[in-house]
């Protein structure tokens, strides 16, 4: 495994030849597929309604909602014209059309249990295509996974030091 190319290991500060690196290398296939999943949701070939820079801004926003400023900084560097969206709570008059998308993102990221039929019909009413709703969910859902793998690895890293 090349640690510097693997976001979860790099973010968690797992160094080559460390005890923890030995533990996670048993699941090297999973770490590799996690990286492929990041590419599939952040930088897909078929972007639908969400170009790569907007996806990076949403990722930074979700990382920040989870309290992970380091991961947020990693994503915001690719957010380009959408970088302002990475700050939750700040209305962005430049991208007003994204308000309904962003409130959906915030709810699915941190109030998952409250998700209801209205959340999907609200996106449909705002003109978001069904395929784009699935793309948006996969992005937020993958980030929930990645954030928690990083957070768990950081805890393990602290224990092994």
């Amino acid at each position: 495994m090349n640690v510097s190319d693997l976001t979860v290991l790099k973010q968690a500060g797992v160094t080559p030849d460390s005890t923890l690196s030995g533990v996670v290398s048993m699941r090297g296939n999973i770490i590799g597929m996690t990286q492929a999943a990041e590419v599939a949701v952040l930088r897909p070939k078929e972007t639908g309604a969400f170009p790569h820079d907007l996806r990076a801004a949403i990722a930074a926003r979700v990382a920040r909602l989870a309290g992970d400023e380091t991961l947020a900084a990693y994503y915001v560097s690719d957010a380009g014209q959408y970088a302002a969206l990475a700050v939750p709570g700040e209305p962005d008059i430049q991208h007003e059309e994204l308000a309904v998308v962003l409130s959906f993102v915030d709810k699915i990221a941190n109030q998952t249990r409250d998700a209801a039929g209205d959340d999907i019909s609200g996106l449909q009413a705002a003109g978001i295509a069904d395929a784009d709703i699935v793309r948006l969910c996969e992005l937020v859902a993958f980030l929930a996974f990645q954030i928690r793998v990083i957070s768990g690895l950081r805890l393990m890293n602290g224990k092994n030091k």
Binding site: T19, R27, T112, I120, V149
Partner: peptide, 24 residues
């Protein structure tokens, strides 16, 4: 430690799966 890492993976994975199944 191997078991702990597997637990991190399985519980995190459902952070992903739940946000598809429960939302869509």
């Amino acid at each position: 430690d191997e078991e702990i890492f597997d637990l991190i993976l399985s519980s995190s994975l459902f952070g992903w799966a739940n946000r598809l199944m429960h939302v869509l």
